[in-house]
Design a protein around this nucleic acid. Structure first.
Lengths: 223, 223
DNA sequence: AAAGTAACGTACTAGTTCGTACATAAGGGA
DNA sequence: TCCCTTATGTACGAACTAGTACGTTACTTT
């Protein structure tokens, strides 16, 4: 009558703190991304897990701490990807274009992350501001852009005197918007920006856009 | 002992359906924009009004219908502004630049609207999709952009073969992002994009960017 | 001035949701 | 093998929140 076999494959423990924790985090990310912080239900997260609500409080302490943990994990995943980006050996124009396109790909592939960021902004960034893990996470990409801009100006190909943060904003804005505002935009203009048939064109757009801006075609073109 | 004067100035009625309705809408807009749909509290909205919760249900029927009413009002306000835009008499380059800058100004001035749009996107645009009032609200601005693009290409100043929806997206993305993502961006990069000292520079940026893209400086600049 | 209706207020309920007290079992070390 | 710690499950409670039943008052119309 034993429903449990006497021997289990090794590593397939009945009780595994790491696995349980990770599973909660994964389910929670989806739930928060889909429903927002206030809209997310702790009971629902528990139901979608192999474990129970009790464990959420056991491992994370509460809804808010779970949310912060989800945010931290999502951001640190992004950081890990960014570290692998190497565009230093490219010429400035191609370097910035490649960076823009990689950002595009990354945002396109991590849509839940974009939604989490939107949600965090609705709550005025109060959680991200508290988390020490997430402070100064932006500097690496900023350094990279700075070096590209400096090189471009030194070589005379970049005419516009642009600021690294501004350039990063320009790229992020485009890449985020098509994900974060897809539904209202789709309702108003009858086009799903995130549909595969628009992907390549938009990917090229952000590259062209940044390069065009930096190389300066817009400067008083009609005066 | 009458705490109420026998005669009141005309127009200052004790009971005014329109005024009460409008006050609820106004307060609700702030509450929804600040806390999201699920986070907003009907009791809180009522408390910030001169009237009671009962009236919210009397005039709107429920929380969700109130939210839709807020959305519809916000969008129709935007529409009203857009109708006043006249850039037809300008040369294509200046026309598109001016449109971009006006969009920038408008988004900068209506931050609660941007937040409502963000919130609606988190909920997958389910309300905006249902509302007939909000359908086809996008076409006017699209027509405008189309005409500008056509004129620019006819005159040979626009080299890039751009799509009107894409161009609108490009402008909206930039103008929305600096408002909707201000908090996470601020936390990561230590700059409040919405601060007054960055306004003029960013306003110029979006204009330059669009013009540069359309006049084609980015095309194979390094090959 | 009477009466009917639109506008409004109070007090309450039903249901949901976060969080916890208490009980229990698995796994590892002595 | 025994025990102790870590991990887990169940059942429940307290607080909050959307929504409503019922009663009342201002304004309008005739």
């Amino acid at each position: 009558m034993s429903s449990q076999p006497a021997t289990r494959p090794p590593g397939d423990r009945l009780r595994d703190a790491e696995r349980t924790r990770a599973e909660i985090l994964e389910v929670a990310q989806r739930e928060f991304a889909r429903n927002g912080y206030a809209g997310a239900r702790v009971d629902e997260i528990a139901a979608l897990t192999r474990t129970t609500k009790r464990m959420i409080y056991y491992y994370f302490g509460g809804k808010e701490q779970l949310y912060v943990a989800v945010l931290e994990k999502a951001y640190s995943d992004v950081r890990a990807v960014e570290r692998t980006v190497d565009v230093e050996h490219l010429a400035p124009v191609e370097a910035i274009r490649t960076l823009a396109e990689l950002t595009f790909d990354h945002h396109d592939a991590h849509r839940d992350f974009i939604k989490l960021v939107s949600i965090e902004n609705i709550h005025h960034g109060e959680h991200i501001r508290k988390s020490e893990v997430l402070a100064n996470l932006g500097t690496p990409v900023l350094d990279l852009i700075s070096r590209i801009l400096d090189a471009g100006q030194a070589q005379g190909v970049f005419v516009t005197d642009a600021d690294a943060i501004d350039v990063h904003m320009m790229i992020s804005a485009f890449c985020c918007f098509r994900i974060s505002n897809q539904h209202t935009f789709g309702a108003l203009f009858g086009r799903d920006m995130t549909a595969p048939e628009h992907r390549e064109r938009q990917r090229a757009m952000i590259g062209e856009m940044v390069v065009a801006y930096l190389t300066g075609a817009g400067r008083r073109a009609a005066t």
